[in-house]
């Protein structure tokens, strides 16, 4: 293999070599080539300089303030408000479910037990209840399953 072709194959690996992200065999191959090739060694040295300079520049430049971080820290640690919010929502939903469910249940039961009502109506009410129960169980099953399998369920970004 001519030297120019060798360099061409090695050059794209130099960044990975610099970051220590090559496989062992790749890394050995690069190291071997570097021993014999001044051009690639010089390029590696240059890349290293670019790497360090950029790192320093970015570090100094980030330009955030301590106040910014403190404010964010406060927001992140504001557990009471987060907790309160969750609890309030839970209470509202739970209350609505119980009250609404009870009203529907009572109405349904009254109609169903009222033998003066036509048979089709009473049968439909029974079907409605059974259907609801079935749906509930199905959704519950799906939920439990998806919790078990998909670790990053919510982060399809």
């Amino acid at each position: 293999m001519s030297k120019a072709i060798q360099c061409e194959a090695i050059e794209p690996l130099l960044s990975g070599f610099l970051d220590d992200e090559l496989s062992q065999s790749e890394s050995q191959r690069v190291a071997l080539h570097l021993k014999r090739c001044e051009k690639c060694s010089a390029l590696l040295a240059e890349l290293e300089t670019v790497h360090t300079d950029l790192k320093e520049t970015l570090h100094e430049q980030s330009g955030h303030t301590a106040a910014e971080i403190e404010q964010l820290d406060k927001l992140l640690n504001d557990k009471p408000s987060k907790w309160l919010g969750t609890t309030a929502w839970l209470l509202v939903i739970l209350g609505a479910l119980v009250v609404g469910g009870y009203a529907i249940w009572e109405l349904g039961l009254a109609l169903w037990q009222d033998t003066s009502q036509p048979v089709w109506l009473r049968a439909s009410i029974a079907a409605l209840y059974l259907g609801f129960a079935g749906l509930f169980v199905m959704v519950l099953r799906q939920r439990i399953k998806s919790l078990k399998t998909d670790k990053y369920r919510k982060v399809k970004l």
Partner: peptide, 30 residues
């Protein structure tokens, strides 16, 4: 401090780079 805050400067720099230094960067990171 919250342990995640150590990553704040890096996250902010990323937002700044993508948004060309826009003022929105800090809000977005928050």
């Amino acid at each position: 401090q919250h342990p995640w805050l150590q990553w704040y400067p890096g996250a902010l720099a990323l937002a700044r780079q993508i948004l060309n230094g826009s003022d929105e960067a800090a809000d977005i990171v928050q």
